[in-house]
């Protein structure tokens, strides 16, 4: 039997998905402590600023002549941020003594993320889609390979290779993971035509849908080794979250009005497609939010669902840590 019935201590107690107490503990020990994805700074804006609201904490990162800096507002309390980058991706955490560096936190995917982030150019406006569900339900959903045929029968499911047992490769390292799914031949052909037309900038020659998850709430999706879409799941309340994402469609041809018009058209199509997929995920995440308080058991995890338990174990470890010693100064 490849299914895993989780034992006590190997998964988060269900009430962490709907209680104020659970979110308060996460605010202190997860979002008040971990490295968090902030965004991609616009190279053309100076000074530039990124903001994020997670679990009641307000993060602001600025780039000015002195470099990157930031602050976290926790109610009336302002706490300095450590800010670092992985390629174009900006991360921050509440300044503290000890803890991993950003490279350690991203391990072993820092280099791969940096490579992919080179394609964070030609940005489309950021998108935020609210879910009436705990943020962790969205994380579980994004690490779930099984729901394509039931939830996305006409979108993602036919877009990836039908023999997914052979053509979906998933690496796990702690709570971080990388899954790489070969595109269906038809989808790969569509991207090849787009590439011929637009001369996409590519970080890799791979006809895949790649998905790198970084604990606790960031994942970077990539298509065809070209388009990249950073996603972040922001907790709003115990039963509410916002999925924030931004599409980058990098092209080497964006000089003429015709090229720009084609790029706009392609980006609009991809935005609509991605939004459609997320709008298919939203009802099932919300169905889990509604159902979880009524379940008596602990579920079961299939061979390709271990990443979800990895995430639970990482959250449990993070919640068990002692309070952070803030640096003096």
């Amino acid at each position: 039997m490849t299914a895993l019935f989780p034992e006590a201590g190997g998964f988060l107690p269900h009430q962490h998905f709907w209680t104020e107490e659970g979110l308060a503990l996460e605010r202190e020990r997860v979002f008040g402590r971990c490295w968090l994805y902030m965004g991609v700074l616009d190279a053309s804006a100076s000074p530039a600023e990124l903001t994020a609201d997670m679990a009641g904490l307000r993060f602001t990162v600025r780039r000015d002549t002195a470099g990157l800096s930031g602050v976290c507002l926790d109610g009336a309390q302002a706490r300095p941020l450590e800010v670092d980058r992985c390629g174009a991706l900006v991360f921050a955490r509440v300044a503290q003594d000890g803890g991993p560096t950003l490279a350690e936190h991203l391990h072993p995917y820092a280099e791969r993320l940096a490579t992919m982030s080179v394609n964070c150019v030609n940005p489309e406006p950021p998108v935020g889609i609210p879910f009436q569900a705990n943020w962790k339900a969205l994380i579980e959903n994004t690490m779930d390979d099984f729901h394509g045929s039931t939830v996305h029968p006409e979108t993602i499911h036919p877009a990836v290779h039908p023999d997914w047992q052979s053509h979906l490769k998933t690496e796990r390292f702690g709570a971080n993971s990388d899954s790489c799914w070969r595109l269906a031949d038809g989808t790969a052909g569509w991207w090849a035509k787009l590439d011929a037309k637009m001369r996409l900038a590519k970080f890799a020659e791979e006809a895949t849908y790649r998905h790198i998850f970084i604990f606790p709430n960031f994942y970077l999706a990539g298509f065809y080794g070209a388009t990249v879409i950073p996603h972040r799941v922001d907790p709003v309340a115990p039963d509410a979250a916002v999925l924030r994402w931004q599409l980058f469609l990098p092209t080497t041809q964006l000089e003429t009005p015709r090229e720009r018009a084609f790029h706009r058209s392609a980006a609009a199509y991809l935005l609509e497609s991605a939004t459609g997929v997320i709008n298919e995920d939203r009802p099932v995440c919300e169905a889990v939010q509604q159902g979880r308080p009524g379940i008596l058991g602990n579920g079961v995890y299939g061979r390709r669902e271990r990443r979800i338990l990895d995430f639970h174990v990482a959250i449990l470890a993070q919640l068990a840590e002692s309070p952070v010693m803030e640096p003096c100064g």
Binding site: H14, E140, D144, V284, A287, V288, Q290, G291, R292, G294, I295, G297, G299, V300
Partner: peptide, 9 residues
Amino acid sequence: NVCTHRFAV
């Protein structure tokens, strides 16, 4: 009315 797999209604 809750699935025992992953708890959806």
